[in-house]
Protein backbone atom coordinates (compact mmCIF):
# COMPACT_ATOMS: atom_id res chain seq x y z
CA UNK A 1 0.00 0.00 0.00
CA UNK A 2 1.37 3.41 -1.03
CA UNK A 3 0.31 6.50 0.92
CA UNK A 4 1.21 9.95 -0.37
CA UNK A 5 1.85 12.72 2.15
CA UNK A 6 1.49 16.25 0.79
CA UNK A 7 4.86 17.83 1.63
CA UNK A 8 4.50 21.48 0.65
CA UNK A 9 4.65 22.80 4.23
CA UNK A 10 3.83 21.54 7.72
CA UNK A 11 4.16 18.36 9.78
CA UNK A 12 4.41 15.89 6.91
CA UNK A 13 7.34 13.93 8.41
CA UNK A 14 5.22 12.89 11.40
CA UNK A 15 2.55 11.32 9.17
CA UNK A 16 5.28 9.66 7.13
CA UNK A 17 6.78 8.19 10.30
CA UNK A 18 3.45 6.77 11.53
CA UNK A 19 2.42 5.25 8.20
CA UNK A 20 5.88 3.69 7.83
CA UNK A 21 5.59 2.21 11.32
CA UNK A 22 2.27 0.68 10.23
CA UNK A 23 3.98 -0.99 7.27
CA UNK A 24 2.72 1.31 4.51
CA UNK A 25 5.02 2.70 1.86
CA UNK A 26 5.05 6.51 1.88
CA UNK A 27 5.75 9.08 -0.84
CA UNK A 28 6.27 12.79 -0.24
CA UNK A 29 4.08 14.71 -2.67
CA UNK A 30 5.34 18.11 -3.87
CA UNK A 31 4.41 18.00 -7.55
CA UNK A 32 1.73 16.48 -9.79
CA UNK A 33 3.96 13.60 -10.94
CA UNK A 34 4.29 12.40 -7.33
CA UNK A 35 0.57 11.52 -7.34
CA UNK A 36 1.17 8.62 -9.74
CA UNK A 37 0.12 5.18 -8.46
CA UNK A 38 -0.80 6.28 -4.93
CA UNK A 39 -3.51 4.49 -2.95
CA UNK A 40 -4.35 7.47 -0.72
CA UNK A 41 -3.20 10.97 0.21
CA UNK A 42 -2.69 12.80 3.50
CA UNK A 43 -2.93 16.58 3.83
CA UNK A 44 -0.96 17.35 7.00
CA UNK A 45 -1.19 20.10 9.57
CA UNK A 46 0.60 23.32 8.79
CA UNK A 47 -0.64 26.72 7.67
CA UNK A 48 -3.64 26.34 5.36
CA UNK A 49 -2.87 29.62 3.55
CA UNK A 50 0.72 28.46 2.80
CA UNK A 51 -0.44 25.01 1.71
CA UNK A 52 -3.30 26.48 -0.37
CA UNK A 53 -0.97 28.93 -2.07
CA UNK A 54 1.54 26.20 -2.99
CA UNK A 55 -1.22 23.79 -4.14
CA UNK A 56 -2.25 26.44 -6.66
CA UNK A 57 1.29 27.43 -7.63
CA UNK A 58 2.09 23.81 -8.55
CA UNK A 59 -1.28 23.03 -10.19
CA UNK A 60 -2.13 20.27 -7.72
CA UNK A 61 -5.75 21.27 -7.05
CA UNK A 62 -7.43 19.74 -10.13
CA UNK A 63 -5.46 16.46 -10.20
CA UNK A 64 -6.27 15.81 -6.52
CA UNK A 65 -9.94 16.72 -7.04
CA UNK A 66 -10.15 14.32 -9.98
CA UNK A 67 -8.61 11.48 -7.97
CA UNK A 68 -10.94 12.11 -5.03
CA UNK A 69 -14.02 12.20 -7.28
CA UNK A 70 -12.99 8.72 -8.35
CA UNK A 71 -13.10 7.40 -4.77
CA UNK A 72 -9.41 7.96 -3.93
CA UNK A 73 -9.11 8.27 -0.10
CA UNK A 74 -7.86 11.59 1.29
CA UNK A 75 -7.12 12.30 4.97
CA UNK A 76 -6.72 15.88 6.27
CA UNK A 77 -5.57 16.94 9.74
CA UNK A 78 -6.03 20.50 11.06
CA UNK A 79 -4.89 22.67 8.11
CA UNK A 80 -5.70 19.60 5.99
CA UNK A 81 -9.31 19.78 7.19
CA UNK A 82 -9.50 23.42 6.06
CA UNK A 83 -7.95 22.53 2.70
CA UNK A 84 -10.60 19.79 2.18
CA UNK A 85 -13.66 21.91 3.10
CA UNK A 86 -16.07 23.28 0.50
CA UNK A 87 -16.83 26.31 2.65
CA UNK A 88 -14.58 28.37 4.94
CA UNK A 89 -16.26 30.58 7.53
CA UNK A 90 -15.73 34.26 6.79
CA UNK A 91 -15.86 33.77 3.03
CA UNK A 92 -12.23 32.84 2.40
CA UNK A 93 -11.76 31.08 -0.93
CA UNK A 94 -11.84 27.26 -0.47
CA UNK A 95 -8.85 25.17 -1.59
CA UNK A 96 -9.53 21.55 -2.65
CA UNK A 97 -13.24 22.11 -1.96
CA UNK A 98 -14.05 18.40 -1.64
CA UNK A 99 -16.01 17.88 1.59
CA UNK A 100 -19.55 19.12 2.06
CA UNK A 101 -18.94 21.14 5.21
CA UNK A 102 -18.19 24.62 6.50
CA UNK A 103 -15.13 25.03 8.74
CA UNK A 104 -14.12 27.89 11.01
CA UNK A 105 -10.35 28.54 11.17
CA UNK A 106 -8.57 29.11 14.51
CA UNK A 107 -11.94 28.67 16.15
CA UNK A 108 -10.55 27.76 19.59
CA UNK A 109 -8.47 30.96 19.74
CA UNK A 110 -4.80 31.77 19.35
CA UNK A 111 -1.81 29.60 20.30
CA UNK A 112 -2.09 30.23 24.06
CA UNK A 113 -5.55 28.60 23.88
CA UNK A 114 -4.21 25.50 22.08
CA UNK A 115 -4.79 22.37 24.16
CA UNK A 116 -4.74 18.62 24.67
CA UNK A 117 -7.93 16.71 25.48
CA UNK A 118 -9.24 13.16 25.38
CA UNK A 119 -11.95 12.37 22.83
CA UNK A 120 -14.40 9.51 22.54
CA UNK A 121 -14.34 8.22 18.98
CA UNK A 122 -16.58 5.13 18.68
CA UNK A 123 -15.25 3.99 15.31
CA UNK A 124 -11.80 3.31 16.75
CA UNK A 125 -12.83 1.69 20.03
CA UNK A 126 -13.60 2.35 23.69
CA UNK A 127 -10.27 3.86 24.69
CA UNK A 128 -10.35 7.70 24.51
CA UNK A 129 -8.07 9.30 21.90
CA UNK A 130 -5.39 11.79 23.06
CA UNK A 131 -6.11 14.75 20.79
CA UNK A 132 -3.75 17.71 20.31
CA UNK A 133 -5.47 20.88 19.12
CA UNK A 134 -3.18 23.63 17.78
CA UNK A 135 -4.87 26.82 16.59
CA UNK A 136 -7.43 24.29 15.44
CA UNK A 137 -10.45 24.68 13.16
CA UNK A 138 -13.82 23.12 13.85
CA UNK A 139 -16.71 22.07 11.64
CA UNK A 140 -19.59 24.55 11.76
CA UNK A 141 -22.08 22.59 9.66
CA UNK A 142 -22.12 19.50 7.49
CA UNK A 143 -24.06 18.31 4.44
CA UNK A 144 -26.17 15.14 4.38
CA UNK A 145 -23.47 12.73 3.27
CA UNK A 146 -21.10 13.63 6.09
CA UNK A 147 -20.77 11.42 9.19
CA UNK A 148 -19.64 12.99 12.45
CA UNK A 149 -16.86 10.96 14.07
CA UNK A 150 -15.82 13.16 16.98
CA UNK A 151 -16.94 16.12 19.03
CA UNK A 152 -15.15 18.19 21.61
CA UNK A 153 -17.72 19.71 23.96
CA UNK A 154 -20.34 20.96 21.48
CA UNK A 155 -18.03 21.30 18.49
CA UNK A 156 -17.57 18.84 15.63
CA UNK A 157 -13.88 17.99 15.30
CA UNK A 158 -13.83 14.79 13.23
CA UNK A 159 -15.83 13.91 10.09
CA UNK A 160 -15.98 11.41 7.26
CA UNK A 161 -17.63 11.70 3.88
CA UNK A 162 -17.20 8.43 1.99
CA UNK A 163 -13.52 8.24 1.03
CA UNK A 164 -12.66 11.54 2.73
CA UNK A 165 -11.59 11.87 6.37
CA UNK A 166 -10.91 15.14 8.23
CA UNK A 167 -9.84 15.94 11.80
CA UNK A 168 -9.38 19.25 13.63
CA UNK A 169 -6.56 17.82 15.72
CA UNK A 170 -3.16 16.17 15.20
CA UNK A 171 -3.03 12.37 15.62
CA UNK A 172 0.45 12.56 14.03
CA UNK A 173 1.82 14.28 17.15
CA UNK A 174 0.87 11.36 19.42
CA UNK A 175 1.86 7.70 19.64
CA UNK A 176 -1.74 6.55 19.18
CA UNK A 177 -1.94 5.19 15.64
CA UNK A 178 -5.62 4.17 15.61
CA UNK A 179 -6.79 6.97 13.33
CA UNK A 180 -4.00 6.29 10.86
CA UNK A 181 -5.03 2.62 10.91
CA UNK A 182 -8.61 3.73 10.30
CA UNK A 183 -7.46 5.58 7.18
CA UNK A 184 -5.51 2.54 5.98
CA UNK A 185 -8.75 0.54 6.34
CA UNK A 186 -10.53 3.09 4.14
CA UNK A 187 -7.85 2.48 1.52
CA UNK A 188 -8.19 -1.31 1.87
CA UNK A 189 -11.99 -1.07 1.62
CA UNK A 190 -11.69 0.85 -1.60
CA UNK A 191 -9.21 -1.64 -3.05
CA UNK A 192 -11.73 -4.44 -2.43
CA UNK A 193 -14.54 -2.54 -4.10
CA UNK A 194 -12.57 -1.73 -7.23
CA UNK A 195 -11.11 -5.24 -7.67
Amino acid sequence: MKVGVLALQGAFREHERIFSSLGAETVLVKKVEHLDSLDGLVIPGGESTSIGRLLREYHLIEPIRELAADGFPVFGTCAGMIVLAKRIHGGEEPHLSLMDMEVDRNSFGRQRESFEAELDIREIGEEPFPAVFIRAPHVVEVGEGVTILARYQDRVVGVREGNLLALSFHPELTDDTRLHQYFLKLIEGRARVTV
Binding site: A7, L8, Q9, G10, A11, F12, R13, E14, G45, G46, E47, S50, C78, A79, Q111, R112, E113, S114, F115, E116, A117, E118, V132, F133, I134, R135, H170, L173, T174
Partner: peptide
Protein backbone atom coordinates in the same frame (compact mmCIF):
# COMPACT_ATOMS: atom_id res chain seq x y z
CA UNK B 1 -10.18 18.42 31.08
CA UNK B 2 -8.42 20.50 28.39
CA UNK B 3 -4.76 21.18 29.13
CA UNK B 4 -3.19 24.30 27.62
CA UNK B 5 0.49 25.24 27.41
CA UNK B 6 1.77 21.64 27.55
CA UNK B 7 5.08 20.68 26.00
CA UNK B 8 3.26 18.78 23.24
CA UNK B 9 1.08 21.79 22.40
CA UNK B 10 3.99 24.26 22.48
CA UNK B 11 6.41 22.10 20.48
CA UNK B 12 3.59 20.95 18.21
CA UNK B 13 2.91 24.52 17.15
CA UNK B 14 6.50 24.73 15.83
CA UNK B 15 6.09 21.36 14.07
CA UNK B 16 3.30 22.96 12.02
CA UNK B 17 5.69 25.68 10.83
CA UNK B 18 8.13 23.21 9.26
CA UNK B 19 9.06 23.58 5.61
CA UNK B 20 7.82 27.13 5.84
CA UNK B 21 9.12 30.69 5.87
Amino acid sequence: MAKTGTEVVKRGMAEMQKGGV
